[in-house]
C-alpha cells in the first residue's frame, strides 16, 4: 500500500518532468510515442501518402489525416484500417501494417492515440 502510493507519486513527478523537458502535456505520452511511430520512415511512414499536421514533406496519394475524433469516433475502425485496409478496399495502395508485420498491436494503439490528437 505504502509502496504503491510512493510509486504513483513517482510516476506523476516523472511524467511531469518529462512533460517539462519535452514540452508536451504528460497526458499525451502514448500519443507522442504514436507520433514517432507514424512519422518514422522505418515504421509507419504514414507521411509518404498522408498529410498529417506537424509532419514534413507529406505525399498526397491519400486523404489528409485530420479531424480524426469527429470522423472516426469508433477506435476499432481506425485500428482495422491501419491493420489491413485491403479488407475494406481490396484495391487500396495502403500497406497492411499488421498483416505484414510492419506494426504490432501496441504500436497501432499508440498511433491511434496520436491520430486522435489531430
Amino acid at each position: 500500500m505504502k509502496l504503491k502510493k510512493s510509486h504513483f507519486a513517482l510516476m506523476v513527478i516523472a511524467g511531469a518532468a518529462a512533460g517539462v523537458i519535452l514540452g508536451v502535456n504528460p497526458v499525451s505520452a502514448a500519443a507522442s510515442k504514436g507520433e514517432e511511430l507514424a512519422f518514422s520512415r522505418a515504421k509507419g511512414n504514414c507521411l509518404t501518402c498522408h498529410e498529417i499536421k506537424g509532419g514534413d514533406a507529406p505525399g498526397n496519394v491519400a486523404p489528409p489525416l485530420s479531424d480524426m475524433k469527429a470522423r472516426f469516433p469508433d477506435r476499432k475502425e481506425l485500428i482495422a484500417i491501419i491493420s489491413d485496409e485491403t479488407k475494406r478496399n481490396p484495391q487500396t495502395v495502403m500497406p497492411p501494417f499488421k498483416r505484414n508485420l510492419l506494426l504490432n498491436d501496441q504500436e497501432i494503439e499508440a498511433i491511434v492515440d496520436f491520430l486522435y490528437t489531430r
Binding site: A57, G59, V61, V93, P96, L101, L102
Partner: peptide
C-alpha cells in the same frame, strides 16, 4: 514486398500523386 505494392499500385492507380515529394 513487405509494403504490398504492385507496379500498378503506383504507376496506374496513383500517377500524378506524390509519395513524399516524388511525383509518380
Amino acid at each position: 514486398g513487405q509494403l504490398n505494392f504492385s507496379c500498378a499500385s503506383c504507376h496506374v492507380q496513383s500517377p500524378g500523386h506524390r509519395i513524399r515529394t516524388e511525383v509518380l
